[in-house]
Simulated assay, not measured.
Amino acid sequence: MARTFSPDLIQTQREWTRTYEALARTPFRTVLRRRLQLLSCRIASHPYWEAGTGRSAAARTELRHQARTAESQERRPA
């Protein structure tokens, strides 16, 4: 069963992924490391995780999957 994440949580995950990819290309960028830490904190402290669904590994995996899907749909030409 697919979970329903709030759009702001999916957007934050998308930003986290983009930042992680940028950091992988240029590993010695302190500003990217700080941004990644900030986004990680925002994801971890999001109110969604306080709901009855819990912080399971499956939920985090599904969040990443939905963020990647949203990213690929946005990049796809119309």
Results as ranks from 00 to 15, higher is better:
I10W: 00
Y20G: 08
Q11H: 04
E50N: 15
Q73D: 10
R75P: 00
A24F: 03
Q66S: 08
Y48V: 05
W49Y: 15
Q11M: 03
E62Y: 06
F28M: 07
V31K: 09
R14E: 09
Q73F: 08
R18F: 03
R75D: 07
P27D: 04
R42Q: 14
R42C: 12
E50C: 07
R34V: 05
R18L: 03
T61Y: 12
L9M: 01
R29L: 13
P27Q: 07
R34M: 05
T19P: 09
Y20T: 13
A51W: 12
R60T: 03
R75N: 09
A2Y: 06
Q13K: 09
T53V: 10
T19C: 15
R76F: 06
A44Y: 08
Q73M: 13
L39E: 09
A51H: 14
H65I: 13
A44P: 02
T53N: 03
E71P: 00
A2V: 08
R34D: 09
W16D: 02
R3T: 02
V31F: 08
R33P: 00
H65V: 14
A78K: 12
R14M: 10
L38G: 05
R25Y: 04
F5T: 03
L36T: 01
H46V: 05
R76H: 10
A57G: 14
F28R: 13
A57Q: 12
T26S: 14
A51E: 15
S6I: 00
T53D: 05
R60Y: 12
R29M: 12
A58K: 12
C41N: 07
T30W: 03
R3W: 05
R55K: 15
A44N: 14
E15P: 08
